[in-house]
Amino acid sequence: MRDRALLLGYLAAVVTATLVHDPRVLGAGAVLVLLSAGRDLPRLLRRLLRATLPVVLAVSLGYVVAARDDLATAGAVLLRLDLRVLLLVGLALRVLPAVNLQRALGFSDSLRFLLVLATSQVLAFGRLFADFRHALDARTPARVGPPTALRHGAATAAWFVRRAEHDAAAMTQALDARGLFLDRD
């Protein structure tokens, strides 16, 4: 229940934040989200900046250059836009990791089942992938050039595809052995 309520609350906040256009309201919302982090504020700020800064800067600078004849209007447009981005991305970083997706979307058994399987596989693949990157790092004295990187990328991609096929077969056998397909012919 908690997860579904959290998710619905988050979605309502997102929709509201895209329907309201007053920069004071958007700014107040962003400040609220930031303050709600409490002691985690520096971490949240860091992640927020890392997620938004490059694209927000590129868009903002581009817009200032394009609208240099009327900087006041450009400033108002950018204030509204950037505060909205901050609010929405902050909200996502703050709320979504706390939501248990499997429980929030638990209205369908097969969807929940799919999410559990996919999440565990994604986490496992993420850890395995880190090893591939580390191994290349450990074996190279300097940044590798494009030919090596491509060869490494292709071998990595192929390995994960094969691993995926293998895991799918193993998972199906395990589910079968546990009686999951008994109701099917």
Binding site: L114, T156, T172
Partner: peptide
């Protein structure tokens, strides 16, 4: 997915997701 009577369909989709996730992490200079 559900209508296909292939018991491997859901596990296959789960690992296809993980494979897609891993492929997206491949980066090139």
């Amino acid at each position: 997915l559900r209508r296909r009577l292939d018991p491997a369909a859901v596990p296959r989709l789960a690992v296809a997701t993980a494979a897609a996730f891993a492929l997206m992490m491949v980066s090139l200079p």
